[in-house]
Amino acid sequence: MYRHEGEDVFVIDSHVHFWDASEENITHDGGEQFIQCFYDYHTGFTPEDRQWTLEEYRKYSPERMVRDVFGKGYVDMAIFQPTYLSDFYADGFNTVERNAELAEEYPERFVLNGRFDPRDGEAGLRELERQKEEYDIDGVKLYTAEWNGDSKGWRLDSEECFEYLEKCRELGITNIHPHKGPTIRPLNRDAFDVSDVDDAATSFPELNFVVEHVGLPRLDDFCWIAAQEPNVYGGLAVAAPFAAVRPRKFGEILGELLFWLGEDRILFGSDYAIWEPEWLIEAVMEFELAPDQRDEYGVEFDLDAKRKIMGENAADLYDIDLDEKKQELRDDSVSAEFGLGDGEAAAD
């Protein structure tokens, strides 16, 4: 819970990872390049006194994650977004199974998402059914630039993918989170083109497409598509650090998002462990649009908008009753361990 102007703001971090990039797990140069690239994003934006060492960053403990995210990070609930990269990592980088270790220990705190890769054919469809059955997932994270054998990526609007989206609809997996963001070495940037979201969103109006990283560096293409597709949302991971390091720029990006999508279709995400939620949430919650930006865009980033972006929008997508949830979390093990019980969040 983040305490803002005397009021509690319920925070759902819609984008977290529990990864393993230890040297023992890396089987391909791509795996080392990938974690090094993540680490550049980490050190590029994180305040110096909060930076991790590369060794810490490769693999962190469940205890550390719970402390960073819930203990001191203001987050009430977090959504796991898996990233497999099985061509690079022996046991995968950030798999459903690995995330489930934590999600099953703290079921009231974590939402566990699954994933699919349409290049996996019939076996992949069975695997998706298994994830639904075993973990009751409501969402999937999709990585269109993931390597798979000779293939360096796939498209959301392909026939194969439509078969999987049809399966999602059938199984009631309603939240589709494609990564459409900055290039991550060694993945091929062209596969992060956002244009394929358009056709998929039109063809599956019952599904919600949460475009992670708001399409950066294609914010323009993303906003234009989202303005026309009511079931397209924007995930703020990667845009959020600008609130801390370059507020003026953050105001422009946020102004565009509020203008084209509106405050009901933007979701906060930290991308933990790329960045820790504590300083990110402080920066976003304290952020105010400059007067000229409010005029230019004709939008407000007031407490109501902040509540929506920080938690209410994700709660709607994942069918979370916030009043019930607040009661439930008040005396769970995490609240007991970190003294969060009475709503006086770590903000004090």
Binding site: D40, G44, L216
Partner: peptide, 25 residues
Amino acid sequence: RRRARLAHVNMDGQGGVCAYLHEAR
């Protein structure tokens, strides 16, 4: 004009990402 502004903000925003990565490197 709004779409042109969006193109301007996008190019500028990506410039920020690149600048921070450049610094990290």
